[in-house]
């Protein structure tokens, strides 16, 4: 094999993607070609360099945010659903709890495939509607300001 041919498939060789026959051809060439050997070393070094990047620790508050949401969602789902479907007076407390848990588990188990939230430039009507809710009781203006903030023009 000539150098150009080998160079083309050297990356595949370096990751072990070549078939046995090609491997033999490449290795035969490498025995006699120091340039290609250097190239192979360079390719392997690339792998090492990437592997040398340290792993960063995720900040602790990522979990906090997750925990808050899953707790609240579990509670909300459990509560909202059982209130609609059960008549508490007819069922003893332990059964109610069990049923609540079961319903919550079933609800969570139903896969709702995450909808792709593709939103282009925020339409004027949406911004208008949200900002108009500025003064509504117990709204959170820190979040609403995201609709009037500079980054969302």
């Amino acid at each position: 094999m000539r150098c150009e041919e080998v160079r083309e498939i050297l990356p595949e060789y370096s990751v072990g993607a070549l078939k046995r026959r090609k491997v033999r051809d490449v290795e035969r060439h490498l025995e006699i070609c120091p340039d290609c050997r250097r190239e192979l070393a360079a390719l392997r070094k690339v792998g090492e360099m990437v592997e040398s990047l340290p792993l960063e620790k995720p900040p602790a508050d990522i979990w906090d945010s997750i925990a808050v949401r899953i707790e609240a969602e579990s509670q909300a789902r459990g509560e909202v659903l059982w209130r609609r479907w059960l008549k508490p007076k007819l069922i003893p407390a332990w059964a109610t709890l069990a049923l609540m848990g079961l319903i919550a588990w079933i609800y969570l188990g139903l896969i709702r495939s995450p909808q792709q939230k593709t939103q282009p430039v925020i339409p004027l009507e949406l911004k208008q509607h949200v900002v108009a809710a500025w003064d509504s009781p117990f709204s959170d203006t820190a979040a609403l300001a995201l609709y009037i903030g500079e980054g969302t023009q």
Binding site: K117, T118, Q119, P120, V130
Partner: peptide, 26 residues
Amino acid sequence: GRRMMGRKMMWGRKACMMFEDIGVQA
């Protein structure tokens, strides 16, 4: 070509487009 995903709803014999989950309090 940026699209917002909407659903066509046949309500009262009119073809309306509904967009869901458009934002907090929206």
